[in-house]
Amino acid sequence: MSNQITLTTTGPDATRALGARLAGLLRAGDLVMLSGGLGAGKTTLAQGVGEALGVRGRVTSPTFVIARVHPALGGGPDLVHVDAYRLSSLEEVDALDLDSSMEECVTLVEWGQDKVEGLAASRLEVLVSRPHGGLGPGDGSPVTDLAGADDGRRTMTVRAVGPRWQGVDLTVLTG
């Protein structure tokens, strides 16, 4: 069993479905760190996680509130969804007091790279990538509107770090 897997989704619905499969691996105390460029699909993946965990409220980008708690509607863990994009220091991350709720929740942090790794000895790191460049889908011909180069596909690299994830089969994410 590998501690890393790379998958491709074909659009927002498939990205949410991957998030739902990811949620099937998660339990209270887990930290998930989502990285990738603007518009890559981090929040779309988080929506699939939130829906599958059965939490209250629509999972949206918490950019302006920084962190949002989505309480569990059933017996599962709450989801703490964080957007660390506007945080510039470890002190600002510490001020969120995320470690006080880590044991009872799944904590999912967008833009957390180099900011939240110290919250837990184990974590899942998910790198979300989207197509770049000026070549369109299909025949690969040059395009002047880069939005035309984005056919909805996303590449997700999921890396398991730490003892919590030893022996966990990430191939279940392939669906």
Rank of each mutant, 00 (worst) to 15 (best):
L45V: 06
L45T: 04
G48C: 06
G48P: 07
V49R: 01
V49M: 03
A52G: 10
V59P: 03
V59A: 07
T60W: 02
T60P: 03
F64N: 03
I66Q: 00
A67F: 04
H70D: 09
H70K: 08
L73W: 04
L73Y: 07
L73V: 14
G75A: 13
L79M: 03
L79W: 09
V80C: 07
H81S: 10
V82I: 13
D83C: 01
L87A: 03
S89H: 13
S89P: 13
V93I: 15
D94M: 05
A95T: 12
A95Y: 10
L98H: 06
D99K: 12
S101Y: 08
S101C: 12
S101K: 09
M102Q: 14
E103L: 14
E103P: 07
C105K: 15
C105I: 11
L108T: 08
G112W: 08
G112D: 09
Q113K: 14
D114K: 14
V116W: 06
V116G: 01
E117Q: 13
E117M: 06
G118Y: 09
G118L: 15
G118A: 15
A120T: 08
A120H: 13
A120M: 10
R123S: 03
R123K: 06
L124I: 05
V126S: 08
V126K: 01
V126F: 03
P131V: 02
L135F: 05
G136S: 01
P137D: 02
P137M: 02
G138L: 09
G138D: 08
D139P: 08
D139Y: 10
G140I: 07
G140R: 07
V143A: 05
T144N: 14
T144W: 12
D145R: 08
D145L: 13
L146P: 14
A147F: 11
A149C: 15
D151Y: 09
D151H: 08
G152Q: 11
G152S: 11
R154S: 06
T155D: 12
A160G: 12
A160V: 00
V161M: 07
P163C: 03
P163M: 07
R164F: 00
G167F: 04
G167S: 11
